[in-house]
């Protein structure tokens, strides 16, 4: 009975994406929380949202972003709703862009992901700027390094998500 109601193909794909996100979050919070470039740590989850949007469309990318945002807000004590709001937006807009304006190529992805990473870092820095306007330059530098340092893992995310998407849509 349930077999008619549930699309197991979609369900399996969703579960794989959730598993993938869990693994990414694990690495983000453990290994990469210790690996810094000039003391700055990476945050590559927004890039994963872009990748999912690119291959699965804006809606699914947005849903992935929502889940990723919730987990990031739980993980980062300084933010309460920032990521929960930002990541779905990143996911959806990236999907929209992929639908109409940009290709699904790696270069296009890296450009979009880089932009998403920078927007995330800038949003994170707003709170600090409000509390302490004098530290704007340090904040900007940190945001830039965070973006650049996240790019290698963004590239890895692209490869992983592309494979998942191909696997999910092939069957």
């Amino acid at each position: 009975m349930f077999a008619d109601v549930i699309d197991f193909k979609k369900l399996r794909l969703a579960l794989v994406y959730i598993l993938c996100l869990a693994v990414m979050m694990f690495f983000q919070d453990t290994v990469f929380a210790r690996l810094g470039l000039f003391g700055v740590k990476m945050l590559f989850i927004p890039a994963a949202c872009v990748a999912v949007s690119l291959f699965e469309g804006g809606f699914r990318g947005g849903l992935f972003g929502l889940l990723a945002g919730l987990l990031c807000d739980l993980s980062f004590p300084e933010s309460t709703f920032l990521f929960t709001l930002l990541f779905p937006a990143i996911g959806f807009i990236s999907g929209l862009a992929a639908e109409f304006w940009i290709s699904h190529s790696f270069t296009a992805y890296m450009a979009t992901a880089g932009f998403a990473l920078l927007v995330t870092a800038l949003c994170q820095m707003v709170r600090v700027i409000i509390v302490e306007p004098g530290s704007a330059l340090t904040c900007l530098l940190t945001a830039l390094v965070q973006t650049l340092w996240s790019l290698p893992m963004a590239a890895v995310s692209y490869t992983v998500i592309k494979r998942i998407s191909r696997w999910g849509n092939k069957r």
């Binding site: 919070d29 453990t30 700055v40 945050l43 993980s75 980062f76 004590p77 300084e78 940190t142």
Partner: peptide, 11 residues
């Protein structure tokens, strides 16, 4: 247990 992965606070 673990250090926060954020660059914007110290916890």
């Amino acid at each position: 247990v673990s250090w926060n992965a954020s660059n914007w606070d110290s916890s």
